[in-house]
């Protein structure tokens, strides 16, 4: 048997009246419906919609393709030999990107490729409206991936009291000994390389 105490809701109102009050209260408040196709949704910062490619930065190093957990990045490239810039100079080789494609029917939006790219060639874009009626059309080739660059937002501002970004910290770091008086004030190298001690050109014994 239900006791009288259980039958009443908190606040002394019977449950049936509380139910009526709850629905009436909800009715006079704004609804939660997102009118999506008519009203653009407000996405959180760093939303993962689609991956954009900045082709100029890509060196075809294949790091992204190798790190991709489901192998959905396809890269073809070849080497090109550039003629020497100055007469008597050395010919140089560089990688030319032939194909860069991401299959978004396989992609699981983990973002490892964006993280792993050492040359800032891949970016997250919040654009998500690229559904297709044919699954094969989800394979985005180089030009389409490059087109997403226009939708990449600027990086969000740092949180208050966050550590300063690595580039700024590196630029502000006092220069280490360059051998010059006063430290020189030039920007130190960003990567640690074995110090090459350049001796003055050896004197030919005469």
């Amino acid at each position: 048997m239900v006791s009288a105490r259980d039958r009443r809701g908190r606040g002394g109102l019977p449950g049936v009246l509380k139910g009526l009050a709850a629905t009436a209260r909800t009715a006079v408040r704004p609804s939660h419906t997102a009118e999506y196709p008519d009203v653009a949704p407000t996405l959180p910062p760093r939303s993962r919609g689609v991956i954009a490619l900045l082709e100029e930065n890509c060196t075809s190093c294949m790091l992204c393709a190798r790190e991709c957990p489901d192998w959905c990045i396809y890269i073809d490239s070849h080497k090109e030999t550039l003629p020497a810039a100055t007469p008597g100079g050395r010919e140089r080789q560089r990688n030319v990107l032939d194909r860069f494609a991401i299959d978004f029917s396989l992609c699981m939006y983990c973002g490892i490729c964006v993280e792993v790219c050492p040359f800032d060639a891949l970016f997250w874009s919040p654009q998500f409206e690229y559904a297709e009626t044919d699954i094969r059309d989800l394979l985005h080739e180089k030009d389409r991936l490059g087109g997403w660059m226009a939708t990449v937002p600027p990086p969000p501002a740092l949180d208050e009291r966050a550590a300063e970004p690595g580039e700024v910290a590196a630029a502000n770091r006092p220069a280490r000994g360059t051998g010059l008086v006063g430290g020189g004030g030039t920007r130190p190298p960003r990567t640690v390389r074995p110090r090459v001690v350049r001796d003055p050109p050896p004197q030919e014994p005469s």
Binding site: A27, S31, E35
Partner: peptide, 13 residues
């Protein structure tokens, strides 16, 4: 419409 708004929805639009 009334049921939708009582449930925090918009109903047919």
């Amino acid at each position: 419409k009334v049921m939708a708004h009582m449930q925090g929805r918009l109903g047919p639009m």
